[in-house]
Amino acid sequence: MSEHAEHVPGLAHHFVSMEQQKEAGTVGMWVFLVTELMFFGGLFLVYTIFRSTYPLGFEYGSFLLNMPLGLTNTIVLILSSLTMAMGVHSAQTNKQGALQMYLIVTLLLCLVFLGIKTVEYRSKLHDHLFPAYTTYNPAIKEAEPNNHHAVPQALKSEVRTFLWIYFLMTGLHAFHMIVGAGMLVGLIWMARKGKFNDVYNSPIEIGGLYWHFVDIVWIFLFPLLYLSGYHLNVGH
């Protein structure tokens, strides 16, 4: 608008106004998130086709996962989405201390999630459930009828297919969390330098979009992976 627009801190010279800059950033981020939707969507499609082909294998495979840890991670991640949203709110209302605090809490929740994920992966490796050729050797139900995490011999290969999909999808999700942690470190660093305020806060808002997207992916992963065999648990 005015010739002095370039003096507004945070406004790049090729944008007419803060509004235009923010709109461009938001739409750009959503285009990226749509490509992410296609990326994860292909895997959800693979999941759907294999699950309808091997329904029993998927139930038993799901039963092998640690539901309480998956649930804990779901709560941790939804909580981190709330703290991220509160961070955006703090930036928009120019509360510098609150902004830094919420970003740091979001980062900590991210690390808690990744820590729990590591515990889960380690326990799967320990139980010979990582589905690679040399590592996959689960307990067999016929040999160990009292082992709740044993797999019926007839379903051994089908469960392995489920575990490949489990490791692929959660691994890709965890990778997105690690990228998100790096992003949060950058945002915290910028926030500490006082870069954000009620006029300029696009990086916080756009970072928030990424973070919420990763949360949404987990909202679908949790019931599909951890809960589809949970009713088997009640039988014991």
Partner: peptide, 8 residues
């Protein structure tokens, strides 16, 4: 979701 998942 977790509550419903207990039942088959």
């Amino acid at each position: 979701t977790v509550f419903v998942a207990q039942f088959n």
